[in-house]
Amino acid sequence: MAATCQICVVLGLFLLPAFIYGDTCLAPVVKSQTYSTPEAVVSTDTVLIAEFTLTCKNNLKNINLYADIGGRTIPATKTYEANKYQISISDEHKKLPPGTYEIRIFDEEGFAALRKAQRSGESTDSLKPLFTISLSHQGIWSGPVLQSEFVAAMTAIIVWWLAYTARGKLLA
């Protein structure tokens, strides 16, 4: 009985690292695409989207990932394709100004450390993410100063006025 217990303990010690590191992505390779709202004419909010494919050296698939964007923590959404994720954030135009946004991606272990640091009021800058995606937001275009309908109406009025005054000079 004691020998069986000792064998179980020894096997447990050898297998423990495999269970601990079993869901950590080793040497992540990331291919990403980003999008940000280009104009304010058709939208009320600025939207930032990052879509990425993650490949791990240890062939880990469909792991839970979390993103930290400027202090906001959100889960990454898994898409229908294997190892493809999407992160999106939206807010008022003035709250997401032009610039480069660093999206730090964490696995569950890193996310737990991030939440612990946030709860205790510590700086999260020292935490190492699984990887980082840079999203460049050029800002929003609010449209032309003059609307095309206004320019067309003013052009029609000017043409009518020129024709009316020319007709008046011919009749006089």
Rank of each mutant, 00 (worst) to 15 (best):
A3Y: 10
T4G: 12
I7H: 13
V9T: 11
V10M: 04
L11M: 06
L11H: 03
F14G: 01
P17V: 00
T24W: 10
L26G: 06
L26R: 10
V29C: 11
V30D: 00
P38H: 02
A40R: 08
A40G: 15
T44Y: 03
T53P: 05
T53G: 15
L54M: 13
T55C: 07
T55R: 14
C56S: 03
N59T: 12
N64V: 09
A67R: 00
I74M: 13
P75T: 06
A76D: 00
T79Q: 14
Y85F: 06
Q86H: 09
Q86C: 11
I87W: 00
I87V: 04
S90I: 01
L96S: 01
P98T: 05
I105R: 05
D107C: 00
E108T: 11
E109H: 10
F111A: 10
A113M: 12
Q118L: 13
S120W: 03
S120L: 08
S120V: 04
L127P: 07
L130C: 01
T132D: 08
I133D: 03
I133K: 05
S134R: 14
L135Y: 01
S136Q: 15
L146N: 09
L146P: 07
T165L: 12
T165Q: 13
A166K: 04
A166I: 05
R167L: 15
L170W: 11
